[in-house]
């Protein structure tokens, strides 16, 4: 099986795709807010709405959270194979 690098920024997930959260590259304060909303390393994040531009909606721990594209781009996930 060929090696596939599935590490992508969260905003590159298509609607319906899922990823495991790996790391944050945003500033501490933003990351802290995200963490209390349920974004912690290892959690499964589901892309609920992503039209390729503008803000997007993800579902994490059963909660729908709207993120700016900039914030989503600073979250690294491991894309899960469907």
């Amino acid at each position: 099986m060929p090696f596939v690098n599935n590490k992508v920024p969260l905003d590159e997930l298509a609607p319906g795709e899922q990823g495991t959260l790996l790391a944050f590259t945003d500033e501490r304060q933003v990351t802290n807010r995200l963490a209390s909303l349920g974004f912690t390393p290892g959690v499964s994040v589901n892309m609920t709405q992503n039209y390729g531009r503008g803000p997007l909606i993800v579902t994490v721990r059963g909660t729908r959270v709207a993120l700016g594209r900039g914030e989503a781009a600073r979250i690294l996930v491991q894309k899960e194979q469907v």
């Binding site: 945003d26 933003v30 807010r33 995200l34 909303l37 803000p55 909606i57 909660t63 729908r64 959270v65 709207a66 993120l67 700016g68 900039g70 914030e71």
Partner: peptide, 11 residues
């Protein structure tokens, strides 16, 4: 300066 957009979408 950018301010982060993080907002819960309530049911």
């Amino acid at each position: 300066q950018r301010s982060a957009f993080i907002m819960e979408m309530p049911l």
